[in-house]
Amino acid sequence: MANCHEMHIGDVFYCDKCGLTLKVEKACTCKPGETGACTVPLSCCEQEMKKK
């Protein structure tokens, strides 16, 4: 699962279906449950992206 608060600089995430690849260059600073925090896992092609 690719939740932004668990991502670290240098992590790479990919989509099995289309091949999209994303590299984290700046870590997220939000904390789960706080106002304005990210609420969904990173997804592409209607499925969650996986960490390489």
Rank of each mutant, 00 (worst) to 15 (best):
M1R: 07
M1E: 06
M1V: 13
M1Q: 09
M1N: 07
A2S: 10
A2D: 12
A2V: 14
A2K: 06
N3P: 11
N3S: 08
N3F: 09
C4K: 00
C4I: 13
C4F: 04
C4Y: 00
C4W: 01
H5P: 15
H5N: 03
H5F: 05
E6M: 02
E6W: 00
M7S: 11
H8E: 09
H8Y: 13
H8W: 00
H8M: 13
H8F: 09
I9C: 03
I9A: 08
G10C: 00
D11V: 02
V12K: 06
V12P: 05
V12D: 04
V12A: 07
V12S: 02
F13G: 01
Y14P: 15
C15P: 08
C15G: 01
C15M: 02
C15I: 01
D16W: 01
D16R: 11
D16T: 15
K17Q: 09
K17S: 08
K17T: 15
K17A: 09
K17I: 15
K17P: 08
C18E: 10
C18S: 09
C18R: 05
C18D: 13
G19Q: 02
G19N: 10
G19A: 03
L20S: 12
L20E: 15
L20Y: 08
L20W: 09
L20M: 13
T21L: 11
L22A: 12
L22E: 11
L22H: 04
L22K: 06
K23C: 07
K23S: 07
K23G: 02
K23F: 01
K23Y: 01
V24G: 06
V24C: 15
V24F: 04
E25G: 12
E25F: 06
K26E: 13
K26G: 09
K26C: 04
A27W: 04
C28M: 06
C28T: 11
C28H: 03
T29V: 04
T29Q: 06
T29P: 02
T29D: 08
C30Y: 00
C30G: 01
K31R: 09
K31I: 14
K31D: 07
P32F: 02
P32L: 02
G33A: 08
G33V: 05
G33W: 02
G33Y: 00
E34C: 11
T35V: 15
T35S: 12
G36N: 03
G36L: 01
G36I: 03
G36C: 05
A37E: 03
C38A: 08
C38Y: 08
C38N: 11
C38W: 03
C38E: 04
C38R: 03
T39C: 10
T39R: 07
T39L: 05
T39S: 14
V40W: 08
V40E: 15
P41L: 11
P41F: 13
P41E: 13
P41W: 11
L42C: 09
S43F: 12
S43P: 14
S43L: 10
C44H: 13
C44P: 15
C44Y: 07
C45D: 11
C45M: 05
E46G: 07
Q47F: 00
E48V: 14
E48K: 12
E48F: 10
E48A: 07
E48C: 06
M49I: 05
M49E: 01
M49H: 07
K50Q: 15
K50A: 12
K51C: 08
K51N: 04
K51R: 09
K51F: 01
K51V: 10
K52H: 07
